[in-house]
Design a protein around this nucleic acid. Sequence first.
DNA 1: TCATATCGTGATATACGTTATCAATAAGGA
DNA 2: TCCTTATTGATAACGTATATCACGATATGA
Lengths: 127, 127
Amino acid sequence: MNKRNTVQRTLVLEAVRALKCHATADEIYQLIVQRHPDISKATVYRNLNLLSEQGEIKRREVPGGADRYDHQVSDHYHARCTACGRVFDVNMAYIADLAQRIQDTHGFAFTGHDIMFKGVCPECQQK
Amino acid sequence: MNKRNTVQRTLVLEAVRALKCHATADEIYQLIVQRHPDISKATVYRNLNLLSEQGEIKRREVPGGADRYDHQVSDHYHARCTACGRVFDVNMAYIADLAQRIQDTHGFAFTGHDIMFKGVCPECQQK
DNA sequence: TCATATCGTGATATACGTTATCAATAAGGA
DNA sequence: TCCTTATTGATAACGTATATCACGATATGA
């Protein structure tokens, strides 16, 4: 392991876990800055990338919005509210063999998939 | 209809249809500029948005890359090559009732879904 | 414990895709 | 034809993310 354990890296990991679900890099930065005003946003981005590569956290790329970072690394699906933009977990079994339903792969080597549901969250429905 | 038929709007629509699949705004702009050097990139973006709203074309938001515009507006799934970033159509039946498999919707009003497969395209596999 | 190599940091510039602004232009109805 | 106003082109601004680089911190070996 040529990675060092820095205070900042620990702070980022703790922040992702504290925010629990789908926080953006900025939200994570804002949380840390409250107690550690000297941290740089670049450091937050760097460590989010590093922790994602190491498998400590999982990056969820959201179409039409900032990437989100999930303390929960297991495969599961998400729903995005088209009104407020927030991302929610979806309570549905992961379809591990989904790629096998593809009729003609044209030689493409599939490694995984994501499903993103769209809709309106309960809060936004009331507005 | 309070929309006017402008030359530029027609050019954008024709370009999307000419490029057939999944062109980015920039690729569309580059094609039009060849013959119409005075068109502005802002106009291309504006008309891509307008045509998408009108249902003439379909915007495909790609995680981690520029939006792509599809002349084919029917629902279907896509695969993104993690090496070159290109987006391909996937030959698989659309699962219209997928949202019904969700066990607990928590009051979320689902309107649709997208599936994005990940993998490596044949060309990139040879490198 | 200390020295040292180098990894990580903070500050900032830059990249990229997209939207906002605004004066000038042009589409389409009267 | 004129008039209203949607649309344009040019450019600034925006949001997200990465690149750069001098300085500081960390882990390892002596």
